[in-house]
């Protein structure tokens, strides 16, 4: 991939695309990345409110001075879909295959005795989870405890700028402050940014934010300064469980694909990549330089299911901003050019 003609890009011989692969299945929510990022980039604590982001998240979101942010998804009640699914699995095993769960008014009695499930649909799996029903021998392969345990999760995810292939912020920046580096990351030059704020609504992920004090835009640089010296970004360096991996983008995608396959082989069917490895037409924002392995719907982590640079979605207007009003009439043509060139998403 090469930079689009509308982008200001730095080229350097031998430099390749670098990125992050954040694997949420090994994240322990320690927030070391959040702190290491602030320390290296000399970002101030920008305030917190108790339970701003629920659970153990008091800082709430990415911001001008928070370039890594750990989300906490506290999820101990199964969804309606999972209740139905579990209940139907129980029902499907009926006629000897159903574990004999003693049920009292829909609640697990926990007395160790055996009863029958009269109406699986009424089974209260939350109560079952809380009382910790175990796997019943000879239950026809239905691992009730396992199924319920799977519903009982506290998930952590370290969020960051996605360094999109089709970067909305970059597309929208009228001053040329936002550039694509030789590592094909998206970088805001702080000495050029004039604080106009156009980039902020142009980010489909809500990443970019304006500094409260000087008004300039701020976000993850993928530690551009460290990369230039051959060092890995501070967050990846600090991550104790290697939930955050840094490396050449293509290698990371390979690693991530193998990881998903491995998790599927272990029975974690819900594992998937968010932002990488999709068919070209399905790529989020043309593919994310910082992508994720998730086990839940993206919305659970505050991520959009679909994302595209506004200029890609609404090419005439956005392009007009970049090229001038005189070209507005030819907008459709320009849009076609841009989209085909980038291999971006078509709608």
């Amino acid at each position: 991939m090469s930079a689009a003609p509308t982008e200001i890009a730095i080229h350097r011989e031998g430099a390749e695309r670098m990125g992050f692969f954040t694997d949420t299945t090994v994240c322990i929510g320690c927030k070391a990345c959040e702190v290491a990022c602030k320390q290296w980039n000399d970002l101030p604590a920008d305030g917190s409110v108790f339970r701003k982001g629920m659970s153990y998240d008091h800082t709430g979101s990415l911001g001008a001075a928070t370039w890594r942010h750990v989300r906490f998804v506290e999820r101990l009640a199964p969804s309606a879909a999972e209740r139905e699914d579990a209940a139907s699995r129980l029902a499907a095993g009926g006629g000897g295959g159903v574990p004999s769960l003693p049920v009292d008014g829909g609640r697990w009695t926990g007395d160790g005795g055996r009863g029958t499930v009269d109406s699986p649909g009424d089974l209260d799996l939350v109560a079952l989870a809380e009382s910790g029903a175990g796997e019943e021998e000879g239950s026809g392969g239905v691992d009730v405890a396992g199924a319920v345990a799977q519903m009982d999760r506290w998930l952590f995810m370290s969020d960051v700028c996605k360094h999109c292939t089709n970067a909305g912020c970059l597309d929208a920046c009228p001053t040329g402050a936002i550039i694509r580096t030789e590592f094909q990351t998206v970088f805001i030059q702080p000495d050029v940014c004039n604080g106009c704020g156009y980039c902020i609504p142009s980010c489909p992920f809500g990443v970019v934010d304006r500094d409260k004090i000087d008004g300039r835009a701020g976000k993850c640089t993928l530690c551009y300064d460290r990369l230039q010296d051959g060092l890995e970004p501070a967050c990846a360096k600090a991550c104790p469980t290697d939930s955050i991996l840094f490396g050449p983008y293509d290698e990371l995608v390979d690693i991530a694909r193998r990881r998903v396959a491995e998790l599927h082989a272990r029975g974690i069917d819900g594992a998937y990549l968010y932002g990488a490895g999709d068919e070209p037409q399905d790529q989020l924002a043309g593919g994310l330089g910082a992508f994720f392995l998730l086990t839940e719907a993206p919305e659970r982590f505050g991520l959009p299911a679909q994302a595209e640079s506004p200029i890609q979605e609404n090419a005439p207007v956005a392009t007009a901003a970049g090229l001038g009003a005189a070209l507005a009439a030819a907008g459709a043509v320009v849009a076609t050019f841009v989209l085909s060139h980038r291999g971006g998403r078509r709608r």
């Binding site: 604590a45 305030g47 008091h58």
Partner: peptide, 9 residues
Amino acid sequence: PWLAELQPE
């Protein structure tokens, strides 16, 4: 401050 804001109360 970097740690204090993460668990403020």
